[in-house]
């Protein structure tokens, strides 16, 4: 797959960082506003998908990318599980126990472990969606 026209590439360069930052914002404010890990992760992967579509899969070495994204997917879901298991040991033999101080409602650093879960779920969703997207792109490459 070749890249798109020069205009698209330039606009992509300008937009990608904003989309990425917006995704990060949605993930980190998951416990305060609507959104959270899944929605933010989906927005983050939108940035990557835009790059792949604009520049074409030839310019990027996608086979390597896929291995990396699937590994980081597994790692982030493991982190969620590790957080849950820490909760198991810290407080009362209960998985997903919220063992950090909850802070004040409305502040960014509050709600205990919830933002951490959001961040790792955001990474997980972004990596998983990127893996799916790259896998489908590679399929198309192979079938040519």
């Amino acid at each position: 797959m070749n890249g798109m026209s020069r205009i698209v590439k330039k606009v992509t360069q300008l937009l990608v960082s904003i989309i990425f930052m917006y995704g990060v914002y949605i993930v980190t404010h998951g416990h305060l506003t609507p959104g959270g890990g899944f929605a933010g992760g989906a927005i983050i992967v939108g940035a990557f998908a835009l790059i792949i579509l604009a520049y074409g899969s030839d310019a990027l070495k996608l086979h390597k990318e896929e291995a990396g994204s699937s590994a980081s997917e597994s790692l982030s879901i493991l982190m969620v599980l590790i957080l849950a298991v820490i909760g198991f040991f810290v407080g009362g033999m209960v998985f997903f126990n919220n063992y950090l101080p909850t802070g004040v409602v409305g502040e960014l650093i509050s709600a205990g472990t919830v933002p951490l879960y959001n961040i790792f779920i955001g990474m997980e969703v972004a990596a998983a969606l990127l893996t799916i997207f790259i896998a489908l792109v590679i399929f198309k490459e192979e079938s040519k």
Binding site: A71, L78, L81
Partner: peptide, 21 residues
Amino acid sequence: SELVPLFVVIPLASAFLIPVI
């Protein structure tokens, strides 16, 4: 009764450990 979730957690964790390690 604390051991009940192990039936779900352990296979789930190993499913994600296997591709990494």
